[in-house]
Measured scan of single mutants.
Amino acid sequence: GMDVRRLKVNELREELQRRGLDTRGLKAELAERLQAALSGPSSG
């Protein structure tokens, strides 16, 4: 899988935006949010 901790802030935001998620917050928050999205149930 993707290691969200290795991504830069702008990369985290890009991935979040692609999934329609909130791109605001600290890098740690963005990484946590993206990780949750990646490990969560895949819809679609």
Rank of each mutant, 00 (worst) to 15 (best):
L30G: 00
L26H: 14
L21Q: 04
A28K: 11
E32L: 12
N10F: 10
L34V: 02
S43G: 13
G44T: 13
R18M: 06
T23Q: 05
D22F: 02
Q17I: 06
R13D: 00
N10R: 15
E29V: 10
L7C: 00
E11A: 07
G44C: 11
M2V: 12
R19W: 04
E15V: 03
S43D: 13
G44N: 12
L12K: 00
L38A: 04
R18V: 05
P41V: 13
Q35A: 12
L26A: 14
R6T: 12
A37Y: 11
R13P: 00
L16P: 00
R5Q: 11
S39R: 15
Q17N: 10
D22T: 05
Q35N: 08
L16V: 01
R13E: 03
L34S: 00
E14T: 10
G25T: 01
V4C: 10
K27L: 09
K8T: 15
S42A: 13
V9Q: 04
L30R: 00
R6K: 15
E11K: 07
E11Y: 04
K27A: 08
K27N: 03
R33F: 02
G20T: 01
V9A: 07
G40N: 13
G40D: 11
S43E: 13
R33L: 03
A31K: 07
S42F: 11
R13T: 03
A37W: 11
R5M: 13
A28M: 07
R24L: 06
L26K: 15
L12E: 00
G44W: 11
V9N: 04
D3E: 08
L21K: 03
N10P: 08
L12W: 01
R33P: 00
V4Q: 03
K8P: 07
G40P: 11
P41L: 14
Q35Y: 12
E11M: 06
E15W: 08
K27I: 08
Q17M: 10
G1K: 12
T23P: 09
S43N: 12
R13A: 03
R33T: 02
K8C: 15
L7H: 03
L7E: 02
K27T: 05
R18H: 05
S39V: 10
G25Q: 01
E11F: 05
S39Q: 13
S42E: 11
E14K: 15
K27M: 07
A31P: 00
P41H: 13
D3Q: 08
L21F: 04
L12D: 00
V9I: 15
G20M: 03
G44F: 13
P41M: 13
R19N: 03
G1I: 15
K8W: 05
R33Q: 01
L12T: 00
K8M: 07
L30P: 00
G25R: 02
L7F: 06
T23R: 04
L7M: 15
E14I: 12
V9Y: 15
L21W: 03
E32N: 11
L12V: 02
G25M: 01
R6G: 10
S42W: 11
L34R: 00
R13N: 01
D22P: 10
L38E: 03
G44H: 13
V4S: 03
N10K: 15
L34F: 02
L30E: 01
A28F: 09
S42M: 14
L16H: 00
G25W: 02
P41I: 13
G40Q: 14
L7D: 02
A36S: 08
Q35L: 15
L21I: 05
G1L: 14
A37K: 03
K27P: 08
R18I: 06
L16K: 00
N10Y: 11
Q17P: 01
P41E: 14
V4P: 09
